[in-house]
Amino acid sequence: MAEWFGSVRAGAAAVASALVLTACGSDNAVPPDSAPPAPDDLACPPGNISGAGSSAQENAMVTWVAGYQMACEGSVVYYNSVGSGAGRSQFLDGAVTFGGTDAALDPKETTEAKERCHGSDAINIPAYVVPIAVAFNLPGIDTLNLRPGTIAKIFDQQITHWDDEEIAADNPDLDLPHTPVLPVNRSDESGTTENFTDYLAAAAGDDWPHEPDGSWPIRPAEAGQGNSGVAAAVKGGEGTVGYVEVSFAEGMTTARVGIGEEFVEMSPESAGAIVIASPQREGNVEHDHALELDYNTREPGTYPIVLVSYQVACLTYTNGRDTALLKDFLGYLVSEEGQQAVSEETGSAPLPDDIRAELNESIGAIETR
C-alpha cells in the first residue's frame, strides 16, 4: 500500500509561521516543500480567520493552508489541531470562525449553533475523505486479513493472542506467533474513534457490544493522544494494533478488511466508493451535507472503514471580511486543485465533481448580516 501514500514534507517556512498547530491534540504536521496548485479564480480577500478541530485532517489542513496562502499572500488562516470534540465546542462557543470535525454536528449541537450563528443554521461541509487504517506491528508478518467481527474482538480485548484460531482461519498461509495482542486506542475524544466505533457497531454485530462514541468505551490496554500518538504507540511496541487516519500510517503494516467473501486493501478508490454510495443524513437543514455512511456495505472493492472530515460553518456571520475569506478558503478546499493536492499528500479520496458542485452552492449561500 505504500506506493499510494504521499508524504508531508518539511519546508515552506513562511507558511509555517501562519499555522497554529502546537496546542493540545496537535500532531505536529509540517507544510509541504512546494506550493500545491490553486484555482485561478481565488478572490484572496485580505484578513485572517481561525479554525480548530480534527487532528485526522491536520495533514490535509497543512497542505490546504500552504496552498491557499502561497496563492493569497495577504490572507491568513490559522488552524489548531485540538481534536474533533474540542473543535466543535470552540466553534459553538464562537471562539473560531470554523470548526473541523470527523463527526458532523448532531441535532443537539445544530440547535445550539443557532445562537452562535446569529439565528442562522450551521452547516457541515465534507471536505476530506480518507480510510482509517487498522495498523499493526507484528515482526515477520507483513499482511493480515481481518473480518469485522475479528477486528471488534481484538479491540474489545476478547482476542488476546495473534495465533488465535479466528485470525488463523482467514490467514492460513501465515505462521502467526503466540504474541499477546495489545490494542491501542485514542486517549482523547476523537472523531476518528467515533467513525471507527460506528463501523464496528454496524459491521460487527454482537461482536461489538458498545454504542458508537467519540470516547473509547472500555478501559484501554494502551492509549495515545491524537492520531500521531496511536501511530507512535503501535510502531514502538510488539503485537500492537491501532486505528489511525491513513496519512499517519505511512511506513506501517495494515490489514485488509473483510467485505462479504473478499478482503479489501485500502486505496483512495476503495475508500471513495463508500462515500459515493452513501446518502445524506435524514433531517439535514438546507445546505447541510452530513452523510449517513453505509459501514455495513457488501459492495465489492469497497474499503468500509472510512472517515469523512467536515468543515463546520455558519450560514451567517457579522464580519464581512471574515465571511469573504472563509468562503474563498472553503471554496479552495473543495476545488479540484485543493482535493488533488491533499490526495497526493495524504492518500485521501478526491470528491466527485457532482458533490463538489453541491458543496460550492452551499458555500456560496454563506452571507454577512
Rank of each mutant, 00 (worst) to 15 (best):
E189S: 13
I159M: 02
I305M: 12
L333T: 02
T253V: 07
D207Y: 09
T302W: 11
L326T: 00
A60N: 11
E58C: 05
R219Q: 14
V15K: 04
Y303T: 05
R186C: 06
A95G: 01
P31S: 13
A10N: 10
D102E: 15
D41S: 06
R369I: 11
A60K: 10
I218H: 09
S26L: 05
T160E: 06
P131E: 13
Y310R: 00
C314R: 10
Y78C: 03
L200E: 01
H161E: 11
E265Q: 14
T240D: 03
F196T: 03
L315A: 04
C117M: 02
G85P: 00
A357Q: 12
P300E: 03
A201R: 12
R281Q: 14
D41A: 05
S34G: 05
G226K: 03
G226C: 08
N284C: 11
N137Q: 14
A2Q: 14
D142V: 02
D288F: 11
T110C: 08
A221F: 12
S55M: 10
A95H: 08
S348V: 02
V8H: 10
T253M: 07
E358I: 12
A16K: 15
T368L: 00
A103R: 11
Y243K: 11
S81G: 15
D354L: 13
G94E: 10
I274E: 04
A341V: 05
N145P: 02
V76C: 02
A152M: 05
E292P: 05
T150F: 11
S270E: 11
T197C: 04
S84Y: 01
S34F: 08
D170L: 04
N80W: 05
A365W: 04
